[in-house]
């Protein structure tokens, strides 16, 4: 075992350099003021106070709203798909799961540009609509386009963990439920769905995380006016240059996400106890 411990050293160093140090720096930046040097740190809560502004609060609320909506849509669409896939023969399952992941092989930017072409006022859909004489619909730069972009991008991350938990489920448990008198719906509700909860939680957490922190999709499909937390952080770092404020927002986001994950976990436990 000692031997192996040595082998993990490079990984540990890698973790410290690329994960731990940036994290410490971000928290450090969040709690200090502009222009300080490493030698003279001015600790302050000013960055956090700054967030307490209706404009920023609205950005937070909107981000959470869209994150929740995206997650719910991914769940409603992804669960049945994962379920149907898990009912197939193994070879078919492998193929279908491959198909689900195909879009993620293509750069997200490219896919998002493709959506822009489809949704634009002079894009494919509106072209079709006007040819049918149905007039135009504005789809770009709305909540709709942003959520659509996020759902399409993040769907595989919902489907795959759910499929994993469904496909490794012991088939005799399903037979046991039916044997004890449960019809198909009851079997699904009382056994299959309950046992797939770990996959559901993984999927939900992953999609929500990506949705709430994404900045490329809202920027491209939402346009310049569309600001979510990710965009706010990006602009603080890239264009405005207030790293301290950007770090403070990141820190708050991280804390909120941690709380949300805690809640999910405890919800699952409680439901398990209640049943």
């Amino acid at each position: 075992m000692r031997h192996f411990r040595k082998l993990s050293m490079p990984y540990l160093i890698w973790c410290i350099i690329f994960i731990l140090i940036p994290l410490v720096l971000i928290v450090l930046y969040a709690f200090t003021t502009v222009g300080n040097h490493v030698i003279s740190l001015n600790f302050s809560l000013a960055n956090f106070a700054k967030i307490n502004d209706p404009t920023y609060i609205r950005v937070f609320i909107k981000s959470f709203e869209l994150g929740v909506i995206t997650t719910i849509i991914c769940f409603i669409g992804g669960y049945p798909l994962a379920f149907i896939i898990s009912r197939q023969k193994e070879s078919v399952q492998d193929l279908l799961i491959l198909l689900v992941t195909v879009p993620t092989w293509i750069n997200m930017l490219l896919r998002t540009y493709a959506w822009m072409n489809i949704l634009a006022d002079n894009g494919i859909i509106n072209g079709l609509l006007s040819r049918l004489g149905l007039g135009q619909v504005t789809m770009m730069y709305t909540n709709f386009s942003v959520v659509l972009g996020m759902v399409c991008n993040f769907m595989p991350f919902m489907i795959i963990p759910i499929h994993t938990s469904l496909s490794k489920m012991d088939g005799s448990l399903i037979e046991a439920a039916m044997d004890l008198g449960a019809n198909r719906l009851q079997t699904f509700r009382m056994v299959i769905f309950r046992l797939s909860m770990p996959g559901v939680i993984n999927g939900v957490v992953m999609v929500f995380l990506m949705a709430i922190s994404s900045f490329v999709i809202p920027k491209l499909l939402g346009g310049g006016q569309f600001v979510l937390i990710g965009n706010l952080i990006e602009s603080q770092f890239i264009s405005i240059g207030d790293w301290n404020f950007g770090s403070a927002i990141s820190t708050i986001l991280a804390v909120l996400i941690l709380i949300a994950m805690r809640l999910m976990k405890s919800m699952d436990l409680k439901e398990a106890e209640a049943n």
Binding site: L173, A176, A177, M178, D179, G181
Partner: peptide
């Protein structure tokens, strides 16, 4: 007649107890 309507019950080879209960 589907299994859930038959008046038989099974004790499965590997028990098949519901792990979440």
């Amino acid at each position: 007649v589907p299994p859930y309507k038959r008046e038989v019950n099974t004790v499965f080879q590997k028990y098949a107890l519901f792990p979440h209960m």
